[in-house]
Design a protein around this nucleic acid. Structure first.
Lengths: 345, 345
DNA sequence: CTGTTAGCGCTTTCAA
DNA sequence: TTGAAAGCGCTAACAG
């Protein structure tokens, strides 16, 4: 491999000046810079990341740590994350490193090892939880990181997130606006920060509509079809509250809800209105549901690019205010929502 | 982070001696070594990989490069590979780096970048093809690598493989031994080296049994249920040769074959014998097929540990002879194979 | 605009 | 058995 020294010799310059030219510093004449770049290219020069990291603290490598769960191999979401991030980081000339931790191994020591190794410039954290210890560790150690999502209402870290609270507020207000009063909410697993945020939005909307919240109407679970199906059946077999609308945290849950509603010989939207948030991860075309599902829409895949950029900037030492971004979402009102049936209005 | 210097100071020794002690060199007194280890532990010392790589050429990081295909996110095999390798490498104290390449990007330049970066010690190559250009590149550049599979009959590189040729030989001989003469073979995509090896084994067995091979009996395709189903139907609708046995390169294909055979109102094994190789990647319990499928058996998951060890040794400069390993396989004869029906015997 | 000097953290001669 | 010194390839002061 050609080194800086080789390029310097070939260009008849000092190593320093070549380094500056290659890194596009301002204090290099244009002619020199161009000549150096040409020589470097002809020698197929590539900077040695280890050497660079050693002196400047930057290697251009960032990592994602994931515990190896039994389902990992069949987890489409996980692969979406990995493929998306990996692609986006190489797009901006960085190396994305995936580290799968042993299933039995506690996760913090893994981060500590990786930090101590000193090979990585920063980390991406996904699926944050409230008071996530990984974030605390990284913050304590002053290691740059970006979170996919937000930890806490006043997050003190770099993140890219969608407005989970706002999304649920919009959905819920739409339903209360139609006249619904008993609105169930099938949310994700408790503890995840987006789950909490969504619950906040739901509760706030109910409150703003003057509707009391009922614990029995909120359910948390893994966001699967089965969860939606079972929750719906249980909700109606309990028969306590005359639920007229169901909000699903994703389209997969909604699919299960549709099945249960059909099985119970009820109809969407005549008997029950259904809405969901669609992140486009499940291969479910919500417009092709029958009846077409009303959704808020924010494709997960649109977050990898901002996330990568955000981490790059965090590593470059950008101020926190620039590193906290909330992506857009849309709302599509289709055929699955209507005013509640008379008997329950 | 604590550095060697810190440890040296705390231990009252020179940096040199500490380095030697920590790396368990022979020329360090036992007392010193133990003391140094203790001090290092108490300071939570971790060697800086970049510094180490810079001077010794070893970082302890190895990589796998995978082009991002549309199906990647739902490709269970891929995740099995990633999770398996990642786990095994951390088991032996190495870092496993996954690099997903952009879909449009030719793959060789990606390797060249990664090599030139000088951050990785070596690579794992999966899904090798005959005359695989990646292997040529890595060999040319003198970068250690290990192949999951073999390239060519007399492979000149480190590999861990199963005896694909032998496996197909065994299967085919078992069928010819039962009296079958027209034995179809549904193999994987042409070009992959294990596909070629299996074909060799199949042809050799036919030859050794004095049975002429027929091109029409060999089919190559993506190893899916659909491939098995369609191939079977086509084979029989052509109606040229009275096929009495089908060999499938994996259990998924066999599942498709079973479906087609059922649809055609034929029976396994009375009309058609079926055998397959089972790598335990598809979640198909071959013993639970009806009738139970006769298979050769070599779980893919058993290859990650040897593969990781092999690469580690290759990086350590072990001789090639130690780096070429062939894993074991078993054969389970169950209910899907029998002598051919009289009319075709 | 350019070169000289120093040093990142580590391993490895070479001497003692 | 130990230490001093050199240097891996690079960047960042500091002079000029």
């Amino acid at each position: 491999m050609a080194t800086l020294k080789d390029v310097a010799k070939a260009a008849g310059l000092s190593v320093t000046q070549v380094s500056r030219a290659l890194n596009n510093h301002s204090d290099v004449s244009k002619t020199t810079r161009e000549r150096v770049h040409k020589v470097a290219r002809s020698l197929r020069y590539q900077p040695n990341l280890s050497a660079r990291k050693l002196v400047s603290g930057r290697s251009g490598m960032v990592g994602l740590v994931e515990p190896r769960t039994p389902h990992l191999a069949s987890d489409g979401l996980f692969m979406e994350v990995v493929a998306g991030l990996s692609t986006q980081f190489s797009e901006i000339g960085m190396q994305f490193v995936l580290h799968i931790a042993r299933p039995d191994e506690p996760i913090l020591p893994v981060y500590q090892r990786l930090i101590g190794n000193g090979a990585l410039d920063g980390f991406v954290l996904t699926h944050p939880e409230e008071n996530d210890p990984r974030a605390s560790l990284l913050a304590d150690e002053d290691v740059p990181f970006v979170v996919h999502g937000r930890i806490g209402e006043a997050a003190e870290h770099a993140y890219f997130d969608i407005d989970n609270e706002g999304i649920l507020y919009e959905i819920t207000r739409h339903l209360t606006g139609l006249g619904h009063k008993n609105i169930a909410f099938f949310n994700g697993l408790a503890g995840r920060s987006y789950v909490t945020a969504r619950e906040r939005g739901y509760l706030k909307a109910l409150n703003d509509s003057g509707i009391p919240a009922a614990n029995a109407l909120i359910r948390n679970g893994e966001m699967t079809e089965a969860f939606g199906l079972l929750s719906t059946v249980e909700l109606f077999s309990g028969g306590a509250l005359p639920v007229t609308a169901i909000i699903c945290s994703n389209s997969r849950i909604a699919k299960g809800v549709y099945q249960a509603v059909g099985a119970m010989n009820l109809s969407v939207p005549d008997d029950i209105s259904v809405m969901a948030h669609d992140d486009h991860v499940a291969n479910l075309e919500t417009a092709a549901f029958y009846p077409a599902l009303s959704v808020t829409d924010a494709p997960l895949r649109e977050s990898w690019a901002p996330l990568a950029r955000c981490l790059a900037e965090a590593i470059d030492g950008a101020p926190l205010s620039q590193l906290q971004q909330v992506g857009p979402h849309r709302i599509f009102l289709r055929q699955s929502t209507a005013a509640p049936p008379r008997s329950n209005a």
